[in-house]
Design a binder for these strands. Structure first.
Lengths: 230, 230
DNA sequence: GCGACACTTCGGCCTGCGTCGAAAGCTTGC
DNA sequence: GCAAGCTTTCGACGCAGGCCGAAGTGTCGC
């Protein structure tokens, strides 16, 4: 999309009409974290029936706002590209919460659509560096993958089995953190890791901001797991 | 608008529905250049009657996309703020044609609404870095100032006297280039510098986009002036 | 102040599209 | 293969909202 010519009024209106339905808006909001989700889940999130959801997803797909990836009897939908994510964030997120987005100069470097939910900052960078170093995190053709060895360690550290199993399946993205200028883990894997750390109380949300601070226990555990924090 | 909380599905849908009508989209497209226009003109641009246009403008106004300024029997409408402009540009303009828009994280750093006219990109950054380093460009309380030494050098490089004298008087802004993430020269000084380089044929506009490319002569001269380009 | 002009509000018509249930693809697992 | 599960397509219904002409409000020029 958005190849060469500026959009005309009809194309722009078409784009707006895609957003104009609460059901579709809900789907897009859910997908703003960069995740890919099956149609059924999106139907539930939007609060509509499967038939209606399917129609909406088709429109979003045809309109270039979503991409789809069929896997078995599921079809996973996600935001089409960074432009779409940036577009949604521009208006949907308050300025303070808007992720810093790497410009298109090196799209391969950072395809992460958002840093909103996943672990960034000093901790995220340290974690990414340590685990890439140790091989717990490996870069493959389709993105970053957490290796079984790492997942085992996390489970022994007390994380629930369903969580750790999910981590094995999720794909991460190498995401450049502006403040640190170094890579950290983004994408669904990054989100899941962050969520799990919050659940395990390794990480706590600070009261007023969206900063995530490691707890004493988390700090200890992370050090055990090879993550070096100053 | 967009003060604190992320938009919910209904607010996002409302936003989309504002865009969803060709007539409203046409109005917004016309206003994307930053101009303020009376209702009648926008009605004509949208190709609808005055009554219809008025209704559309009211919706856009209530929705926070437009601002209005009454003057005599005219009411001048314009885009509400930079977020709205950025939002429209994200999808309506191809990447290459998108003005560089400064992130809001540090409004004091760069108040320039657009970097459209002044030198940005790799060259702008290199120039700014080199001249700050050499002291040709100095940061004072009221902004960036080109020093006499630099102006002398430019004049010796063939720039006309009126141009170089003007450069001495103009104030620049430190402007964060989104793609390079480093400082470059903005503000009136930045614009004047760019214009002068275009006049001197150090820079040329590329045919289809807004990109500015250094000519062979310009490249040579800039190197002489301490600007290191890879 | 009176007409001309710019714009908004009001009322009625009509199309577009979101909604759902039912049924028809496809894929998986036994 | 056959049944179960996820997703899409089809057909029918109902409402939101865009459109215009006409009338109302406010401003300018003489």
């Amino acid at each position: 999309m958005n190849d060469a010519a500026p959009l005309n009024r009809y194309q722009l209106a078409e784009l707006g009409s895609l957003l104009a339905e609460p059901a579709r808006a809900a789907m897009l909001l859910v997908l703003m974290d960069g995740s890919a989700r099956p149609a059924g889940e999106l139907a539930q999130a939007a609060g509509v029936g499967a038939a209606t959801a399917s129609a909406h997803l088709k429109r979003l797909l045809d309109g270039g706002l979503l991409g789809v990836h069929a896997q078995g009897r599921h079809r996973y939908y996600r935001l089409a590209d960074d432009d779409v994510a940036a577009w949604l964030e521009t208006m949907a997120l308050p300025r303070a919460a808007r992720p810093l987005r790497i410009a298109a100069t090196d799209p391969a470097l950072c395809r992460a659509r958002t840093c909103y939910r996943h672990l960034a900052g000093e901790l995220g960078v340290a974690l990414c560096a340590a685990w890439l170093e140790s091989g717990w995190l490996q870069s493959r053709g389709d993105g970053l993958r957490l290796q079984p060895l790492a997942v085992d360690a996390l489970r022994q550290a007390g994380w629930p089995l369903p969580v750790t199993e999910r981590l094995l399946r999720l794909r991460g993205r190498a995401c450049l953190d502006w403040t640190e200028r170094r890579l950290h883990v983004g994408g669904p894997l990054g989100v899941a890791l962050t969520d799990a750390m919050l659940d395990a109380d390794w990480l706590r949300r600070s009261r007023d901001s969206r900063a995530l601070l490691p707890s004493m226990a988390g700090l200890h555990q992370l050090t055990e797991l090879g993550v070096c924090l100053k």
